[in-house]
């Protein structure tokens, strides 16, 4: 294998891992801290992408448009949390059905309002040639974001007051309440954060794929797979899980093509569920969700 081929493969691997991390981040934050599986995750991603695409079409530069996308999904998240989700905090199974129904509603409403697809926005930044191989600079940016997001969340949780309150609430709601932490607002903020991260994934990938109402579907398998494997912790769970799954997917895709890559991902999940029933995070950190 030549050096160029090696770099090309490393680039593919980086892209796959970044995709897994960015898809999963919002889901993992909400699941890890609140124990709620947000089935509307894919639709929040879609809102991020739609927001970006629409703002961009109205003349905003891509960076600002992406910001609009993130804001749109965050606002949706806040709205959902206020009206519906907060009634289901202690009922994980019902919250699953509930968020699922909401997701279905959002995607079908988008179909009705915006039609089957939005015009696509072009991928910015061009590419660099490397040997006979060209690397998209935007792809490198995605990889950078894939690494930066878990680190940023880690810093948020370990250095800020919100992080302290969030960790306290996560470990013992009653005690947290007793020492004066408003667990309700911690949950609201966590849900908004998760929704915002979903929107970020949508905004970042908007220039690389066509914006359709059910585009969330292309993210959520990867997102769920990563969270099932890794558990709810971004640094100890999502990162290593994404790295492992990305490796499996890239290797299989390179040798056997796309389909085997995706199927390999599923097989890897089922096997890892057998090996680490409580998620990688449990195995790596010795505790659940912390």
């Amino acid at each position: 294998m030549t050096q160029v081929e090696l770099i090309a493969l490393a680039y593919q691997f980086g892209l796959a891992v970044a995709f897994l991390i960015l898809s999963a981040a919002g889901l993992a934050v909400i699941f890890g801290m609140m124990g709620i599986v947000n089935m509307a995750h894919g639709e929040l991603i879609m809102i991020g992408a739609y927001g970006t695409s629409i703002a961009n079409r109205h003349g905003l530069p891509l960076v600002l448009a992406a910001l609009c996308g993130v804001l749109a999904s965050t606002a949706t998240g806040v709205l959902l949390e206020r009206t519906v989700i907060r009634r289901f905090y202690d009922r994980p199974s019902e919250s699953l059905v509930m968020t699922w129904a909401i997701g279905l509603f959002i995607s079908q409403a988008a179909l009705i309002v915006f039609g089957p697809s939005l015009p696509s926005i072009s991928s910015p930044l061009g590419s660099v040639a490397f040997g006979g191989f060209s690397l998209s600079i935007y792809g490198l940016l995605l990889i950078a974001f894939g690494l930066a997001v878990p680190v940023a969340i880690y810093l948020l949780l370990s250095t800020t007051t919100f992080g302290l309150h969030a960790r306290a609430t996560m470990q013992n709601v009653e005690v947290a309440r007793a020492i004066g932490i408003n667990s309700g607002s911690v949950y609201s903020a966590t849900f908004a954060l998760g929704a915002g991260l979903a929107g970020l994934a949508g905004a970042l990938y908007a220039p690389t794929m066509s914006a359709v109402p059910n585009m969330g579907g292309s993210f959520i398998v990867q997102a769920f797979v990563t969270v099932v494997t890794g558990g709810g912790n971004l640094v100890y769970g999502t990162l290593p899980a994404a790295a492992g799954l990305g490796l499996v997917q890239t290797a299989l895709t390179a040798v056997f093509g796309n389909l085997v890559g995706v199927l390999g991902l599923l097989a890897a999940v089922i096997v890892s569920a057998k090996l680490f029933p409580n998620g990688l995070a449990h195995r790596l950190s010795g505790k659940r969700f912390s």
Binding site: P92, S93, V221, F224, V228, L259, L265, L266, A273, K274
Partner: peptide, 23 residues
């Protein structure tokens, strides 16, 4: 028997369903 329980059962079955559709 792999010890998956609760909501993770739902997610695992969803991933398998969508994988089958993709295939």
């Amino acid at each position: 028997f792999g010890g998956i329980n609760g909501v993770l059962v739902s997610i695992t079955t969803l991933a398998v369903t969508l994988g089958l559709e993709t295939f």
